[in-house]
């Protein structure tokens, strides 16, 4: 397995007062699903957009390393980056209802990606679009190509977005909360589709979600984000078997995960909300919500390794046990 996307110490800020992303490091291996998980507002979407070079106006990105398939993409111009987007790296979004242009047909929006990156005739591009629509489980693809987004349901639109992302056989698909806006039954279908596609096409997926149930089903590796930082990173098995960072543990206590949480056990909660972290902030961002924080948490956060491939950012030893609540 080789590293497809290698991000080291990614930082993003939109104004001078605060950083949205405060040093995120993520490695996505070829053909694996890497889940970026965390509460809303923790910076996971911004990190993904930063990698794609799609930050909103005013967003400033820095990184120690930003490599895709061995190529440094941190210094690419907007024009060079646009050659990569939609071709080698594709992205789908949370809002299928608004992510397609209402003024153009499904076919024309799909065909233009192929023609932009691979050339060829519109006919060829449309044929491929029809084949891909069929592949993502849309019946009567020929008819759908001529339809406009408003004529499709949310689930269908997300399938169209996925098919559109596959137009140029990307190596990496970034999926930003792809099922959050969908009905529960449709969510399951879309997730199954993503898994099938990955197996079939050897696609690497960077899946952004707040839903640990999805992580448990989909992920090979997991990075848990809190307040603009990755606080714990491990294989899915290792993470669920031995969550180490207090935030990860709190997060897991909040949700019942079939087969991982004992039946009848009470669910926990994490007090408070994700704070706004000012620029130049020292120490651990979680300390105000953490039951185990001490004075040292205000200054340093040690990076520790529980076992090879399982890292976490906390002063607590790998095998710490929560003191029983008095």
């Amino acid at each position: 397995m080789s590293t497809l996307l290698d991000v080291q110490d990614l930082r993003v800020r939109f104004n001078t007062a605060a950083e949205a992303v405060r040093g995120v490091s993520v490695r996505v291996e070829t053909g694996e699903t890497h889940c970026l998980v965390g509460e809303s507002g923790c910076g996971k979407s911004v990190s993904a957009l930063a990698v794609m070079g799609l930050l909103a106006k005013g967003g400033i990105r820095t990184a120690d390393r930003l490599e895709f398939a061995g190529q440094d993409i941190s210094r690419l111009s907007e024009r060079q980056m646009s050659r990569l987007r939609g071709d080698k790296i594709a992205m789908i979004f949370q809002e299928p209802m608004t992510s397609l242009n209402p003024a153009y047909t499904v076919g024309s929006q799909m065909a233009e990606v192929r023609m932009r990156h691979r050339g060829g005739s519109k006919r060829e591009a449309l044929d491929r679009a029809a084949a891909l629509l069929g592949r993502v489980g849309i019946t009567a693809p020929g008819m759908r190509l001529a339809q406009y987004p408003h004529q499709l349901s949310g689930g269908l639109r997300q399938r169209v977005m996925i098919a559109m992302a596959l137009m140029c056989d990307p190596e990496l698909l970034i999926a930003d909360e792809p099922t959050t806006a969908l009905d529960v039954t449709v969510q399951a279908q879309i997730l199954r589709l993503l898994m099938e596609l990955q197996r079939e096409l050897g696609l690497a997926i960077l899946l952004i979600t707040h839903d640990l149930g999805i992580v448990a089903r989909m992920a090979h590796r997991v990075s848990v984000m809190y307040a603009g930082k990755v606080v714990e990173s491990a294989t899915a098995d290792s993470l669920f078997a031995a969550p180490t960072h207090p935030y990860t543990r709190g997060l897991l206590d909040c949700v019942p995960i079939p087969g991982k949480v004992a039946r009848g056990a009470p669910l926990g909660s994490i007090p408070g909300t994700v704070p706004r972290i000012p620029l130049g902030f020292q120490g651990c961002g979680f300390r105000d919500r953490c039951a185990h924080a001490d004075a040292s948490c205000a200054t340093i956060v040690p990076q520790q390794t529980r076992q090879p491939g399982h890292a976490y950012a906390c002063r607590l030893p790998a095998g710490w046990v929560a003191e029983p609540v008095a």
């Binding site: 794609m52 799609l54 907007e78 980056m81 646009s82 050659r83 990569l84 987007r85 939609g86 071709d87 594709a90 992205m91 979004f93 809002e95 608004t98 992510s99 397609l100 242009n101 209402p102 003024a103 153009y104 233009e112 990606v113 932009r116 990156h117 977005m161 559109m164």
Partner: peptide
């Protein structure tokens, strides 16, 4: 809008994004 973000994610040229996708709407 979200569909312009999609258009950018598709790697379309700036001209196509502004003149085709945004202007039409």
């Amino acid at each position: 809008s979200d569909y312009i973000r999609t258009a950018r994610a598709k790697g379309l040229s700036r001209a196509s994004i502004v003149l085709k996708h945004a202007l039409r709407n």
